[in-house]
């Protein structure tokens, strides 16, 4: 009967997904000797850092009882903007001018593109009281179209070693993307557990009308949350582009689904108000390990999708059972 807010703290509440992860790892390592190696360990973490970035933003959105379907497209546009600016700058033929961008400038522009699109999502949702599903679905198409326009449909490649360091480099024995996503997770955990913003996010998801009557500025909090989600999708775009040394116009397609899967497997309720960032991280790791394991075991990519779908179902069923027992 005793169900308190403790459940969004990363204590024992998420224990069963840790067990699931352990069983998963054990199973794969019995079947493949390539799984339990240092190289593969970092490889998996590097691969999931993009999803961790996006899913952190997604968790914030879902906690307010919203959803962001546009993250994959926003990721693509952000990556393309960074790559385009870095490679080509902004040519202005009429004035016979060429505005070059530094590395830092291009990166910032890419991330800010993500923030801008996220802000637009929040604006559409709060200004016109649109359901988040609809507003972000529209953005999914808009941002994808803009990406195509910006790239002309072709990848932008050859971005230079200092840029690819972000996605492929190492720092003190740990891959750079893992540092970046780890930092993001740490900050987001702090925000959700220790700040007013975090508290308001949970309150809005728990009961929007009670939060409003308590003086919470619902519109502002939602704007912040969607802007953060867009920003983090932008960071994800940076990591993807940097790792591939190329901005693909169709990057990030269906990433929103992996992200929602991570959030849900991590125990965050799609109706809002319950869940945690660290739960989502566990969800992302489970998906990452599963992907990796299935590849190592030479499972066909078609079967991989089927298996992944069943794992999502199973995870959520187990989670619901255990939260009822609480």
């Amino acid at each position: 009967m005793q169900l308190s807010l403790e459940s969004h703290k990363p204590t024992l509440a998420r224990f069963q997904s840790l067990i699931a992860l352990f069983v998963l790892c054990l199973g794969i390592s019995l079947m493949s000797d390539k799984f339990l190696t240092v190289a593969n360990f970092w490889n998996v973490l590097r691969q999931i850092s993009v999803n961790v970035c996006i899913s952190t933003g997604m968790t914030l959105v879902v906690l307010t009882a919203g959803i962001d379907l546009s993250v994959g497209s926003v990721l693509a546009l952000s990556g393309a903007i960074t790559a385009g600016l870095l490679r080509n700058g902004i040519p202005m033929p009429s004035a016979n001018l060429f505005i070059g961008f530094t590395l830092l400038g291009s990166i910032l522009a890419g991330i800010l593109t993500g923030s801008g699109l996220g802000w637009f999502n929040g604006w559409a949702i709060t200004r016109f009281s649109l359901p988040p599903f609809v507003a972000t679905l529209a953005m999914l198409t808009i941002a994808r179209g803009l990406t195509m326009l910006w790239t002309g449909g072709f990848p932008i490649t050859g971005l230079g070693d200092s840029f690819t360091y972000l996605g492929t480099g190492w720092l003190i024995g740990i891959p750079v993307p893992v540092w970046i996503s780890g930092l993001i997770v740490a900050i987001a955990t702090l925000i959700t557990n220790k700040t007013r913003l975090g508290r308001y996010i949970y309150a809005i998801g728990g009961s929007e009308s009670a939060a409003r009557l308590s003086g919470v500025n619902i519109e502002r909090i939602k704007m912040v949350v969607y802007t953060l989600a867009g920003t983090l999708a932008g960071v994800g775009g940076l990591l993807v582009t940097s790792r591939l040394d190329s901005a693909q116009p169709n990057a990030g397609i269906s990433y929103e689904l992996d992200s929602i899967a991570a959030v849900v497997i991590g125990g965050t309720s799609l109706s809002g108000g319950r869940g945690s960032i660290l739960g989502t991280v566990q969800g992302a790791i489970i998906i990452g390990v599963l992907n990796n394991g299935l590849v190592l075991l030479n499972v066909s990519p078609f079967w991989q999708q089927v298996v992944k779908g069943f794992v999502i179902l199973l995870a959520v069923i187990i989670d619901q059972k255990s939260s009822k027992r609480e």
């Binding site: 308190s4 949970y202 309150a203 728990g206 009308s209 939060a211």
Partner: peptide, 16 residues
């Protein structure tokens, strides 16, 4: 509906 966030604990509701 409007007075409380029912899922939240007593403490969190009071301090909101």
């Amino acid at each position: 509906r409007d007075g409380l966030v029912l899922d939240m604990d007593v403490k969190t509701n009071i301090s909101l």
